[in-house]
């Protein structure tokens, strides 16, 4: 469903790669948490899946397509299979809540009747039933976030990318959103969620991929925000070739393992 082969992402004017030789595979219907410190490359990973950025090195396959070969003309059609929730929401400022959600259906040619039916449903699902005619700047951060989620899921995408979708929400709304994402995931959608919310990760017991300075340091099934079980990839040394690690930017002490208990759990609930 999503495959990264030795993917490195270097931004112009930044000598340190945002992603460094990342190799992984995510299967259909999986629910994956992407964790790691700020600046570790989570958003960069999601942008690469979306082909909002191109990798500097390596190959990315999403939904059976080689993203390197996707022409700019075909990118929009590829993206119709993906739902995205951004860290910064990216709502259309002149459109109402309803308009923002409806827009993603309009551009792919859904009928007016269908839109009139589907949008209120999904707004109700995210708890915004009464606010359909508000403009984005008339909403709180958490409400805007829920509009973004509604927009991302309204077309029932094959893959849902969510960058800190609960970042601005209170615990009970967060829980509601997570129930929503779980429901979407159980209907077959692959969900990849970047988050700092340890409570949610620990509670959900799903696959966790941890990034440190652009490298995968942990990839475990039913993991927690910090390591609890035997990791799938014990250390970055095993996961990639020796060459990439001659300048390993990750000090070994930073990599949490089962034997070195985690220090302070900043995000504990």
């Amino acid at each position: 469903m999503i495959r990264f082969d030795q993917v490195t992402k270097l931004y112009a004017g930044n000598s340190r790669p945002a992603l460094n030789s990342v190799t992984l595979e995510i299967l259909k219907g999986e629910f994956v948490f992407l964790v790691g410190a700020s600046g570790s490359g989570k958003s960069s990973f999601l942008r690469l899946v979306l082909k909002e950025e191109n990798p500097s090195k390596g190959r990315i396959h999403v939904l059976g397509q080689d993203l390197g070969r996707l022409t700019s003309r075909k990118v929009p059609y590829f993206r119709r299979n993906l739902g995205v929730v951004f860290q910064d929401f990216r709502l259309l400022p002149q459109k109402t809540v309803f308009g923002n959600v409806a827009f993603s259906m309009q551009v792919i040619g859904k009928s007016k009747g269908f839109i009139q039916e589907a949008v209120p449903d999904v707004l109700k699902m995210v708890g915004l039933a009464g606010k359909a005619s508000r403009l984005p700047h008339e909403l709180s951060g958490g409400e805007q976030q829920r509009v973004a989620i509604a927009r991302a899921i309204v077309n029932k995408p094959a893959i849902l990318l969510a960058d800190e979708p609960t970042g601005n929400l209170d615990p009970s709304t967060s829980a509601g959103i997570m129930t929503l994402l779980e429901r979407i995931s159980s209907s077959g959608t692959t969900v990849i969620m970047a988050t700092h919310d340890a409570g949610i990760v620990d509670q959900m017991k799903r696959r966790v991929i941890e990034l440190v300075s652009g490298q995968i340091v942990r990839d475990e099934r039913q993991g927690g925000y910090q390591t609890q079980a035997i990791p799938l990839q014990a250390s970055p040394r095993e996961s990639s070739d020796g060459l990439a690690h001659t300048h390993d930017p990750v000090p070994q002490s930073q990599v949490p393992t089962a034997t070195t208990p985690a220090p302070v759990r900043r995000f504990a609930p």
């Binding site: 929009p76 059609y77 993206r79 119709r80 709502l91 259309l92 400022p93 827009f103 993603s104 551009v107």
Partner: peptide, 16 residues
């Protein structure tokens, strides 16, 4: 440009 970026992200075609 922001709006155009969002349109591209929700899958609006070039022609659109």
């Amino acid at each position: 440009r922001r709006e155009l970026g969002i349109m591209r992200l929700v899958g609006a075609s070039n022609r659109f």
